[in-house]
């Protein structure tokens, strides 16, 4: 099984030079640590910043400079600051090319659920519904199964959904999968030490397996 950092590391390999990227809270935030130095990308924070830099040193901490997870941050050279309306105009307008976010469930047709557990958790959707409705490419970082072993890659979501037919790729702690436009999870890679059979038994939705499935390669 992959650790959270390994999931982030694998997702970072999907990042392309020159992209504008929005990273969600949790594992997606870690992706920034693994983007190769030779790629020039700009990270968008939906609370109003293009150009998220590293976390600040103790003496750089500024309460007026935070990311969407409310963590203190710095700005890179060439950053731009703007309002929330402008921020979501660039998101809805399709200018943010890659969105990486977490999920509680994904269905085989690409629906995602990540904002609400009725009667239990009511944190709200934040910017997730806007992001998944408009991003060019959406990659989900998630655990393949719940704590008691139930698959989170489903035929259809059981939780209230965040967006329909929007997920392009999933990197779970067990596998890398592409969500096909016609429906189904196409298995691309296995986590080290995880067999195709195991992935099959832990995937409730339609799983498509073609030929040999390689193990993930973490070398760049």
């Amino acid at each position: 099984m992959l650790t959270k950092d390994q999931i982030a590391q694998r997702i970072a390999k999907e990042v392309k030079d020159g992209q504008y990227i929005n990273l969600g809270i949790g594992i997606p935030t870690l992706v920034a640590n693994y983007i190769p130095d030779d790629l020039d990308v700009i990270l968008q924070s939906e609370n109003g910043l293009l150009g998220i830099g590293p976390f600040p040193t103790e003496d750089q901490v500024d309460p007026d400079l935070i990311n969407a997870g409310k963590q203190t941050i710095t700005m890179t050279k060439g950053s731009a600051l703007f309002s929330s309306a402008e921020s979501f105009a660039m998101i809805r307008g399709g200018h943010v090319q890659l969105t990486i976010l977490g999920a509680m469930e994904v269905s085989e047709n690409g629906d995602i659920a990540n904002w609400k557990i009725p009667g239990k958790m009511v944190k709200g959707m934040g910017g997730a519904m806007d992001l998944v409705a408009s991003a060019e490419r959406i990659i989900v970082a998630m655990q393949h199964c719940s704590k008691n072993g139930q698959s989170k890659l489903l035929k259809s979501c059981t939780l209230p959904i965040t967006g329909i037919r929007c997920v392009d790729m999933i990197v779970s702690d067990m596998a890398v999968l592409e969500v096909l436009p016609e429906g189904g999870f196409k298995l691309l890679e296995r986590a080290p030490g995880i067999s195709v059979e195991e992935i099959k038994s832990k995937t409730e939705g339609k799983l498509i397996i073609e030929g040999e499935i390689p193990e993930m390669n973490f070398a760049n």
């Binding site: 939906e46 309002s83 929330s84 309306a85 921020s87 979501f88 105009a89 998101i91 809805r92 009667g119 009511v122 709200g124 959707m125 934040g126 910017g127 997730a128 519904m129 806007d130």
Partner: peptide, 22 residues
């Protein structure tokens, strides 16, 4: 307060909130 029904809550997508106010 929300789960007990004491507080009424309308949760809306962040971009929709920003644009509705705009």
């Amino acid at each position: 307060q929300l789960l007990s029904g004491e507080l009424e809550v309308e949760l809306i997508p962040q971009g929709t909130l920003a644009e509705r106010v705009r």
